[in-house]
Simulated assay, not measured.
Amino acid sequence: MNSPAVSYKNHRFPPQIIARAVWLYFRFPLSLRMVEEMLLERGIVVSYETIRRWGRKFGTAYARQLRRKKPSRKDIWHLDEVVISIGGRKHWLWRAVDQDGYVLDEIVQARRDTQAAKRLLVRLLKKQGLTPKRIIIDKLRSYSAAKRDVMPAVEQSWLGKSVLRG
């Protein structure tokens, strides 16, 4: 059962501008007024209310297209962990992001060891269905040990600074 194609008929703005505004709103934690300002900086005068209407009308179709992105053997995964506090106790948030910036998986664990890294890699493989071309990690030894057990054929690179922390 195919859903009907997105129609931009009777819209004042071209489809590229509408798509960009909706993508900005849903992809990043921006308010409607922030998206309005970003478009205004590029010379596009559109109200935040119009962007809200576009989001309601076209948002689900765009989300469906984004979810359709199939994993590829050419993908590069960036893996990192950050300490967080939950109820006053220290936990670790492990994240995997692909080369396009999409979060592939997140997992919160009480430990920062090889077993925790293995758990993340196994979850990623189950969820993605394919191994990546390369993984980029920081110098945490747990990643190397887990990768050796779970996906030994995958190429590995190191980063000195984290690319996932915002």
Results as ranks from 00 to 15, higher is better:
90 K>R: 12
44 I>E: 05
71 P>V: 01
141 R>L: 11
133 K>I: 01
89 R>T: 03
139 K>F: 06
23 W>L: 12
6 V>D: 14
90 K>E: 09
129 G>E: 03
48 Y>N: 13
36 E>A: 09
149 D>A: 09
11 H>C: 15
103 V>L: 07
148 R>D: 07
47 S>H: 01
152 P>L: 00
56 R>N: 07
97 V>K: 02
75 D>C: 01
100 D>S: 08
65 Q>H: 15
117 A>R: 00
141 R>Q: 14
147 K>R: 12
118 K>E: 11
145 A>Q: 10
112 R>Q: 04
37 E>G: 15
127 K>L: 02
147 K>C: 12
50 T>D: 08
61 A>T: 02
137 I>R: 13
31 S>Y: 04
38 M>L: 06
153 A>Q: 15
73 R>H: 15
133 K>L: 00
19 A>F: 11
106 E>S: 13
120 L>Q: 10
151 M>I: 00
38 M>P: 11
52 R>Q: 12
36 E>L: 06
58 F>G: 12
85 S>D: 13
74 K>R: 14
76 I>A: 06
91 H>Q: 10
48 Y>A: 15
122 V>F: 12
132 P>D: 09
67 R>M: 11
22 V>R: 07
75 D>S: 07
148 R>M: 02
54 W>S: 13
90 K>Y: 08
99 Q>E: 08
143 Y>Q: 00
166 G>S: 15
38 M>E: 13
60 T>C: 13
47 S>C: 07
35 V>S: 09
166 G>Q: 08
101 G>N: 00
132 P>R: 08
43 G>L: 02
9 K>P: 04
67 R>K: 09
162 S>K: 02
84 I>T: 03
72 S>C: 06
157 S>N: 02
99 Q>D: 04
111 R>W: 04
31 S>C: 04
105 D>M: 03
114 T>M: 02
89 R>G: 08
96 A>Q: 00
146 A>Q: 00
48 Y>H: 10
79 L>D: 06
85 S>W: 07
48 Y>Q: 11
5 A>H: 14
34 M>N: 13
131 T>Q: 14
75 D>H: 08
97 V>W: 04
26 F>H: 15
83 V>D: 09
105 D>E: 07
103 V>D: 09
126 K>H: 06
122 V>L: 07
123 R>S: 12
59 G>Q: 08
51 I>Q: 14
70 K>W: 07
59 G>W: 01
42 R>F: 11
23 W>P: 13
108 V>W: 05
104 L>I: 04
156 Q>D: 03
149 D>W: 07
97 V>N: 05
10 N>D: 13
83 V>N: 14
75 D>Y: 04
140 L>G: 05
8 Y>C: 01
165 R>H: 15
41 E>I: 01
141 R>A: 14
147 K>F: 11
35 V>Y: 07
118 K>M: 10
112 R>V: 02
57 K>I: 04
53 R>W: 11
106 E>Y: 02
50 T>P: 05
58 F>L: 02
113 D>C: 02
42 R>C: 14
92 W>D: 03
68 R>I: 00
75 D>F: 00
4 P>E: 13
148 R>T: 03
162 S>H: 05
23 W>H: 10
13 F>R: 05
15 P>Q: 15
144 S>Y: 10
130 L>Y: 05
136 I>R: 10
77 W>E: 03
77 W>V: 03
19 A>K: 05
106 E>I: 04
